[in-house]
Design a protein around this nucleic acid. Structure first.
Length: 464
RNA sequence: GUCCCUAUCGUCUAGCCUGGCCCAGGACACCGGCCUUUCACGCCGGCGACGGGGGUUCGAAUCCCCCUGGGGACGCCA
């Protein structure tokens, strides 16, 4: 166990997105690699937008990806007493003060400042006021006016801000609830977080938070800001770029290991290596190799990785997953051929579990209608003799493994004088209902003698 | 607008810190070929980048400066 303590702190206002998942992954990986502690904290101080459904969705997504945490989930909504006490401490020490400006006044000032071409900042109206009217107020943190705040980002290197750029941010709302920039400081400190790994969009918050650690009597943690993930148009990744939720990909038939592999390589690299198992990553991951610039989310590469993991996956496990997809589509898989055997015939031709399910369906549901074009071309009077020949020999074959089946086809080819190119398509339509299927010998073997004969006879009967 | 970050093939990136091994390597995608009973897989090959301008140096993708591009932040959201 090392002293490293990291955390993932999502706000439950939606599902777990690609970007959040990567941040969580980086935290997880570093914690596991350094044998540190990974804390999960739910940032639900925005009562309006936080929902239990979102919490569940996030937890579920993390579980799917295999990102286990050591402590938590902690809910900020259950820690208000702590925040309240800290706000009061700041008020007493003078590090914070009450501000009686109304939201409307503030909006107007912000608008004006923006118009004037400046940075919209709080003008400090209540910073030094002595009277304390009996009116609604917010609490603001007294930020330093001069000097520079610098920190060394573990990914980006030294970053510094002029304190004059900062304004006094609100740490407690009119309704008494604390705000993000405050609770994040209190919690990261109270939970002993030593390294904050979070999105790039928080670099600007960092110089505002550092003085708060000091005012509260805490040591500031280290920071590592992970670059943003962009869409193909270089704009911040959002719904209009298509599926951005991790679970959307699960629904589309993606494997969690493909998602993890893709996510980690977006912004991190290890020489020329492309394929990483979670175990590899725990061994090899390092903040030193995380890039500093934003990256574009590339669904094609994710697809390729998924294809890779499907191709190399354990047939038994994949079979279970495909069965789930099929079940959702109302296809029963408990009766037909062995799922693992079915999967083996499809691993080289499916890029997703959904595609695999599409390819596997015919094994469990005999064709009720034949694909029109294929039937017109192959289920003709001309193919009757071939089907009859096949039915006879297949029924008589001593074994029914690949070798036996191949022998039967060889024999039929000889007797009919036809090449496999003529016979294969006929059998394919009869068994699978269309012109696309795995290798015909494999299909025959997996389907089994009884089912093959049934389907062939049915096809034969359809030719009239 | 102000501030912060950032910049190698269309995309993800290696190389940059510790200049020469780089007329820049890998992967995805794309294109062509081979294999082939369908669809795929696989294999082989190809296209394709150091944003621009100044420096420093015998020598720069690598170091420095400026410009430009891109992203982010500027909320009683997180």
């Amino acid at each position: 166990m090392s002293d490293l303590r990291v955390r993932f702190a999502p706000s439950p206002t939606g599902t777990l997105h690609i970007g959040g998942a990567r941040t969580a992954l980086f935290n997880y990986l570093l914690a596991r690699k350094e044998k540190g502690t990974f804390v999960l904290r739910i940032e639900d101080t925005d009562v309006e937008r936080s929902t239990q459904e979102s919490v569940d969705a996030i937890l579920q997504a993390m579980d799917w990806l295999g990102l286990s945490y050591d402590e938590g989930p902690f809910y900020q909504s259950q820690r208000y007493d702590l925040y309240k006490a800290k706000v009061n401490a700041l008020l007493e020490s003078g590090a914070a003060y009450r501000c009686f400006c109304t939201a409307e006044e503030l909006d107007a000032k912000r608008e004006a400042a923006m118009q004037a071409g400046g940075k919209p900042r709080y003008d400090g109206t209540c910073r030094d006021r002595i009277d304390q009217p009996d009116a609604p107020y917010v609490v603001r943190f007294r930020s330093p006016l001069e000097g520079t705040t610098t920190f060394v980002d573990r990914i980006k290197g030294p970053i510094s801000f002029d304190n004059a750029e900062l304004d006094d941010l609100i740490i407690q709302r009119t309704d008494g609830n604390p705000t993000y920039n405050f609770v994040v400081v209190v919690d990261d400190a109270e939970m002993g977080i030593t390294l904050v790994i979070r999105g790039d969009d928080h670099v600007n918050n960092t110089p505002r938070q550092i003085p708060m650690y000091t005012a509260l009597g805490y040591d500031a943690p280290e920071f590592a800001h992970v670059p943003m993930i962009l869409g193909a148009d270089k704009k911040r990744l959002s719904k209009r770029h298509g599926a951005t939720s991790v679970m959307d990909y699960r629904a589309m038939g993606y494997l969690p290991e493909a998602m993890v592999n893709y996510l980690v390589r977006l912004g991190w690299s290890c020489g020329d290596e492309e394929i990483f198992s979670m175990a590899d990553l725990i061994e090899k991951f390092s903040l030193d190799n995380v890039g500093r610039s934003a990256g574009v989310f590339n669904p094609e590469k994710l697809l390729w990785l998924n294809e890779h993991y499907i191709k190399n996956g354990d047939p038994g496990r994949l079979g279970g997953l495909v069965a789930e997809v099929l079940a959702q589509q109302g296809v029963e898989t408990t009766k037909g051929p062995d799922l693992a055997a079915v999967v083996k015939t499809l691993q080289d031709r499916a890029k997703t579990l959904v595609e695999m399910a599409d390819g596997a369906r015919f094994y469990y549901q005999a064709p009720t209608v034949y694909e029109a074009v294929a039937a017109a071309k192959f289920l003709t009077a001309e193919s009757r003799p071939v089907l009859e020949l096949l039915i006879r020999h297949l029924a008589e074959a001593t074994g029914f493994d690949l070798a036996a089946i191949e022998a039967v086809f060889k024999q039929v080819m000889e007797e009919s004088g036809l090449k496999l190119g003529k016979i294969g398509p006929v059998v394919r339509v009869a068994l699978a209902g269309g012109s696309v299927s795995p290798s015909i010998y494999e299909v025959v073997a997996v389907l089994g003698r009884e089912e093959v004969l049934t389907r062939m006879k049915k096809a034969l009967a359809s030719i009239s």
